[in-house]
């Protein structure tokens, strides 16, 4: 049951101001996004049209604290097919970015941010990796990147890195 007193009518404007969220109010709920969504095809809890709708309704906490905003596989099928140019992937990014600022980060993405912010790539390179590369005739790769670490320290992911 949705209680109007629990809705935040300004949430849609907040999303529209966030980078990537500008076109959210262009949605006319046709459902082309959901029809072509590969994640929706597997699991009904991820439903792009429904997510847009609950954002427009102003169900701020339900959206930002949800697991489903992290389930977009970024295939861009909805993005390219949307007749209203809503740019749903960018909206999902905007929602996730707002959630992070509010302190809600899915553990998987917290870990990705930690790795990239700390080591400059998605995994920590060990001596063993460079030995293996040498055997294959490949040049060694750097283990850390101080400047990437600095970029991370100046961003929203600063709390997630070592």
């Amino acid at each position: 049951m949705i209680e109007t007193k629990d809705l935040d009518p300004n949430f849609k404007y907040e999303v529209a101001r966030e980078s990537g969220g500008a076109n959210i109010m262009q949605c006319f709920a046709c459902g082309t996004c959901t029809a072509g969504c590969p994640v929706r095809g597997i699991d009904e809890k991820y439903n792009p049209r429904k997510i847009i709708r609950i954002v427009l309704l102003g169900m701020r906490d339900e959206v930002l604290q949800s697991d489903f905003i992290w389930l977009c596989s970024t295939c861009y099928t909805c993005y390219d097919r949307c007749p209203q140019d809503v740019r749903l992937i960018d909206i999902m990014t905007a929602l996730k970015n707002i959630a992070v600022k509010e302190g809600y980060v899915h553990p998987a993405f917290r870990e990705q941010a930690r790795l990239v912010g700390t080591f400059g790539r998605l995994y920590e390179v060990e001596d063993y990796d460079n030995k293996k590369r040498k055997k294959l005739g490949l040049p060694p790769v750097k283990k850390t990147f101080e400047d990437v670490n600095l970029i991370a320290r100046n961003s929203e992911i600063k709390e997630m890195i070592e």
Partner: peptide, 25 residues
């Protein structure tokens, strides 16, 4: 290029601005 690092994609969901700076780097 040994100074090439992550493209930025994995941090787009947490901070799209930082992702863009990493790509631009």
């Amino acid at each position: 290029l040994e100074d090439f690092a992550c493209c930025g994609f994995p941090v787009k969901s947490t901070d799209s601005g930082a992702s863009l700076v990493m790509a631009a780097r």
